[in-house]
Design a protein around this nucleic acid. Sequence first.
DNA 1: TTGCGAAGTCAGCGCCGCTAACTTATGTAA
DNA 2: TTACATAAGTTAGCGGCGCTGACTTCGCAA
Lengths: 214, 214
Amino acid sequence: MAASQERVGGRARADDGHERKDRYHHGDLRESLIEATEALVRSKGAEHFSLADACRFAGVTTAAPYKHFRDKQEILEIVCQRGFESLKAATAAAVEKAGAGTLEAIQSMGRAYLATAVTQPNLFRLMFGQNSDLKTAGIVDEAGTGCLAYLVEQVSLYIERQGRAEDAQLVALKLWTFVHGAACLLIDHDYDKVAPGLDVEALIDSGSRDILGT
Amino acid sequence: MAASQERVGGRARADDGHERKDRYHHGDLRESLIEATEALVRSKGAEHFSLADACRFAGVTTAAPYKHFRDKQEILEIVCQRGFESLKAATAAAVEKAGAGTLEAIQSMGRAYLATAVTQPNLFRLMFGQNSDLKTAGIVDEAGTGCLAYLVEQVSLYIERQGRAEDAQLVALKLWTFVHGAACLLIDHDYDKVAPGLDVEALIDSGSRDILGT
DNA sequence: TTGCGAAGTCAGCGCCGCTAACTTATGTAA
DNA sequence: TTACATAAGTTAGCGGCGCTGACTTCGCAA
């Protein structure tokens, strides 16, 4: 075994992050491929992702993935699922910190939503839209529903506490719609076409106030 | 020449819409391929579109497109460009009918925007997001900018005529953001996860009123 | 120790994007 | 009218990809 290489979690891994091929069995190829897929999707976008690339990254032949996954689609589904879980975790953390039902919690959630879109636009595109086959998959639908329902619930909670006459869920959906639209137009650079240098944060704050009626 | 076939625009065309291969030269392969691409993208989505399919549809070999287009990407760019031009034409028609600067014009534009998304979701996804390479192309950027700038201008026009203190462009951008978000969440079936059976029209009307302050 | 099953490899199929070299048809100029 | 230049097709083929079936290696449990 070369000195430039270490064992991590039972598998051989070289310093550059690529897997080494000195043992016949990999150790945890399934997880390695998922991680490689996520990394490649984030950096190149799902439309430029090839399973063969992930295999090269993991140091196995292109036939190996099929011992762990049905097809290419299944790996993308798992990455998508984790994206929703991660988004839910991020928003839940924001809510916990600010206190459920507070305005600060709602604003933090919005920022977390936008941050996900901005820092990982390719993952965000995978989760929302793009490939409609993905969203019909069971695990993706479940994780997505869990995540989005949480968002809407939390916003509804705040609005109910304000004791407004309006339907709380409707307001929550409008807020989500607005923030989502801003996230899409921002990462797709559509604002640049019409209003270069636009302060999107300010736009969102203003729109949110309109919808919340504050 | 078989009786079941007619010549349209100088090219041989069979009754089923597929091109016939009885003459060496096609007539207008360039246009045929663009139309085939648009039809296939609309029906199957850009991620399932193959140039080879378009070739089969047009009745030529897979090498033929390269006499007319740089690569597969260029055809998609043209389809995308036409999508923006079509959207602009639809909104312009709506404005013309209702009268520029009126509330009715703004509402019609919103409906036209949404109708494009709902009736041609795959084309809408091609135009907004998905493949970031497309939008950097010159012709797409130009058509997109022209279309979106028109939208924002028209909304701004209405708001200015209302004589409101608020920045007209900001309000226009908020309105666009909201309608765009609704269009995305609707065609990607994300509303279904959280609020099945939601009346999206009502949601948009309500949100628009919030933003316009009416 | 052995043998079975999980997890790899290898070889290969069909589809795709794209190219080089060749062929056919068409419009133009002598 | 004919000769030719060239636009617009075809054929053959390369490399990459997703995926499969048959084979091999290895770890674990009896």
